[in-house]
């Protein structure tokens, strides 16, 4: 079988979101749908050394994230699972290269987060308070410092939440959740954000 390239034709990706209803909401919490930007995941005992060999920083413990240069978040979801998420649509080449380079490697399994997950970015002082309406994990700064990762339930859907700080976005929360539920979740979060004007 030919290699099945998940990073292929990024310009042909289409969002599942219908933002016409929710974008008109006024809230101090800013939201951005980064679903169409590139990301990739790797799992396996060889994944850590594979990523390090490409010069990428690796969080030292599971459930932590790092910011690589300016717009690439590296999440460590377990001892042997890593996701790389492009926030500014500037790392596609790196991600595609990684995908190709992982081909055939022993103990490095490419994951499907590019197409299985939606990726939302939230920023604003009240973001943790907004999440407290939909998520049982305390995401306030004292309990959830920069680089923390929570794999949890958000509005009754599985979600991965991390907090990072970048030059282009400032402090922000990143939420990765099932793509098929993205329409539902986007509206649920719009509702949760609406009280923070």
């Amino acid at each position: 079988m030919e290699f099945f390239n998940l990073s292929a034709v990024p310009n042909s990706r289409k969002s599942l979101l219908d933002v016409t209803n929710t974008e008109s909401l006024t809230s101090s919490i800013q939201r951005q749908d980064c679903t169409l930007y590139s990301r990739v995941g790797f799992r396996g005992m060889g994944a850590e050394s594979f990523l390090m060999s490409h010069g990428l920083p690796i969080p030292s413990k599971p459930n932590q994230s790092l910011l690589f240069e300016h717009g690439l978040v590296v999440l460590r979801l377990s001892k042997s699972e890593f996701w790389l998420v492009d926030l500014d649509n500037t790392y596609h080449e790196l991600i595609e290269t990684l995908e190709f380079d992982a081909k055939g490697l022993e103990d490095v399994y490419r994951l499907f987060c590019q197409h299985s997950h939606a990726c939302f970015l939230f920023k604003g002082e009240q973001t943790a308070a907004m999440f407290s309406k939909v998520c049982g994990v305390d995401l306030r700064s004292d309990a959830f410092p920069l680089g923390s990762v929570a794999q949890t339930s958000v509005a009754r859907t599985n979600g991965i939440v991390t907090k990072q700080d970048s030059d282009s976005h400032g402090e922000f929360f990143l939420l990765l959740s099932d793509l098929a539920s993205s329409h539902y979740l986007w509206e649920a979060l719009a509702d949760a954000a609406s009280e923070f004007v």
Binding site: D18, V134, A180, S181, D191
Partner: peptide, 14 residues
Amino acid sequence: GRIFSPHKHTPMHR
């Protein structure tokens, strides 16, 4: 509360 009823759409839902 605000009833959360997660549901999934396929990419062709629209």
